[in-house]
């Protein structure tokens, strides 16, 4: 899967389709104060889906590392987390712009927003922790254990806790229903699902480039020893 090509093109086509369709298909224009900004569903939300998917791959590989102590799993785990952090930053930034024009403020003290920001910091800390340790196996072991704690915390902060409270403005959190609960015109779904699949593929592609690069370095070291 890392070395084949077809899925990369398929993902790119899906994202391109979601950009074109997301802007050109007629969308429901009656969702509260969202008006045309509802189209952001095709762009802002897939960032988070991609982040969660990559973090899931990351924590699975952290577990595999602790089971086998094979450094290649640590490479997969850390590179997926690094790309996930990038997508998370994109999610925060795009969400902030959307918030400015629907809620009137770049940032609100909303459980969803703060939870996502805390989750983001958790994984920034993961990357900093890794960079502060020189010994490769110590680095891998520590960061794998950290990631096993960080992943459930991320899910709780960014996903579960915002659903439990009552006063969140973010769709899908508190008493604000998610987009899937609105009587949607199906055009949104027609571009939203391909966008999610396409962006997850893009994220995985970006991660595999970093992973393959580190595999080369790892093999080089093995051959030198």
């Amino acid at each position: 899967m890392i070395y084949s090509n077809w899925w990369k093109y398929a993902g790119a086509v899906l994202v391109l389709y979601s950009i074109i369709g997301g802007l050109l298909f007629v969308n429901p224009n009656n969702l509260l104060f969202l008006d045309e900004t509802v189209r952001n569903l095709n762009f802002h939300v897939p960032m988070w889906f991609t982040m969660i998917a990559l973090l899931f791959i990351s924590v699975i590989n952290s577990l595999k590392y602790l089971k086998t102590f094979d450094l290649k799993y640590d490479i997969i785990a850390s590179k997926c987390a690094a790309v996930a952090v990038l997508f998370g930053l994109m999610g925060l930034a795009t969400g902030s712009v959307w918030a400015r024009f629907s809620w009137g403020s770049w940032w609100t003290a909303d459980a969803k927003l703060n939870g996502a920001a805390i989750g983001e910091l958790l994984y920034l800390a993961y990357l900093i922790l890794r960079n502060s340790i020189d010994d490769p196996s110590k680095k891998a072991r520590l960061s794998s254990v950290y990631s096993i704690f960080a992943f459930p915390l991320f899910i709780v902060f960014a996903w579960i806790y915002p659903k439990m409270i009552t006063n969140s403005m973010h769709p899908g959190s508190g008493d604000t229903v998610g987009f899937n609960k609105y009587p949607l015109n199906n055009n949104l779904r027609m571009t939203f699902y391909p966008a999610v699949i396409g962006w997850i593929t893009m994220g995985w592609w970006m991660a595999t480039l970093l992973i393959r690069n580190d595999f080369l370095l790892l093999n080089k070291q093995k051959n030198e020893n």
Partner: peptide, 18 residues
């Protein structure tokens, strides 16, 4: 093939946009 597919998908979306 990919380029052709991209072009066709673009044209078809243009065609069905209202």
């Amino acid at each position: 093939k990919i380029k052709l597919f991209l072009l066709l998908s673009f044209i078809s979306t243009l065609a069905c946009a209202q």
